[in-house]
């Protein structure tokens, strides 16, 4: 899969032939230095952008062949996205943010509220349901964003530097939550990160450099140090 874009008058080759297959549910990290193409890859996988060449198949469906409205419906029902900046709608409460996909899908209000409250309770945010984002802490906002991403129980969830704005303790909580979701809900979670500590929560890590995957490592307690070393080397 390739993808290039223009920046001013320059043409940037962001992805130069990526071949990635994730077949089993689990927590997968994509690591790499700045400019390696990891965010571009995530955008393509999350049906937010289209590749120049290549195929993207999710759950047996070729998303690179979908039109705009098919992509929209696919994102709504089959994909969850969590952002570094949380990206909650500032005019909506936590409950309204969590249930936004259901609102867009036309779910009746009472059903929406039930679903949203159950989810917030699971996430430990039931008492924050009516609060707007500006009244929530960073960790709470990210948990609300995760709740919004898993509302329709998608088979795949993408997280773009989900702990980039959080302190270490809160980061640990959020990463544990994602790992738990992958394990208990049988989901594929793909996380873009450049922190080895975050990647340590994953089962597998793909390391990108210059638009190509240069290493894929199965992560376990014994090789976290190797992961850190490779990531550090790449960062240098």
């Amino acid at each position: 899969m390739t993808k290039s874009y223009t920046l001013g008058r320059r043409s940037i080759e962001a992805l130069r032939g990526i071949d990635l297959e994730i077949t089993k549910p689990g927590f997968h990290a994509i690591m790499g230095p700045s400019g390696s193409g990891k965010s571009t890859l995530l955008h393509l996988l999350a049906a937010l952008d289209r590749p120049d060449q290549g195929e993207i198949e999710i759950n047996g469906r070729r998303i690179d062949r979908m039109n705009e409205s098919q992509l929209t419906m696919f994102r709504r029902h089959h994909i969850g996205i969590v952002f570094q900046q949380y990206n909650l709608l500032s005019t909506m409460s936590a409950l309204e943010n969590v249930t936004l996909p259901a609102l867009l899908d036309g779910m009746p209000r009472s059903q929406r509220i039930d679903l949203g409250m159950n989810l917030l309770t699971t996430l430990g945010l039931a008492d924050r349901a009516e609060h707007r984002p500006d009244a929530l802490s960073g960790g709470e906002q990210q948990r609300v964003a995760i709740g919004r991403a898993i509302l329709f129980e998608p088979s795949i969830l993408y997280a773009d530097e989900p702990t980039g704005n959080l302190d270490s303790q809160t980061s640990e909580q959020v990463l544990n939550l994602l790992a738990t979701l992958a394990r208990e809900r049988n989901m594929i979670i793909v996380m873009v990160t450049h922190e080895p500590a975050a990647a340590a929560h994953c089962q597998r890590a793909s390391i990108l450099r210059d638009g190509r995957i240069v290493h894929t490592i199965d992560v376990h307690e014994g090789n976290v140090g190797e992961l850190a070393t490779r990531a550090l080397q790449l960062d240098r």
């Binding site: 999350a46 937010l48 705009e68 409205s69 929209t72 419906m73 994102r75 709504r76 029902h77 996205i81 952002f83 990206n87 909650l88 709608l89 500032s90 005019t91 936004l100 996909p101 867009l104 899908d105 919004r148 991403a149």
Partner: peptide, 12 residues
């Protein structure tokens, strides 16, 4: 906000 809505499945 509009882009986020699009990300989570809001149509044009």
């Amino acid at each position: 906000d509009l882009a986020i809505t699009r990300c989570v499945g809001g149509s044009r």
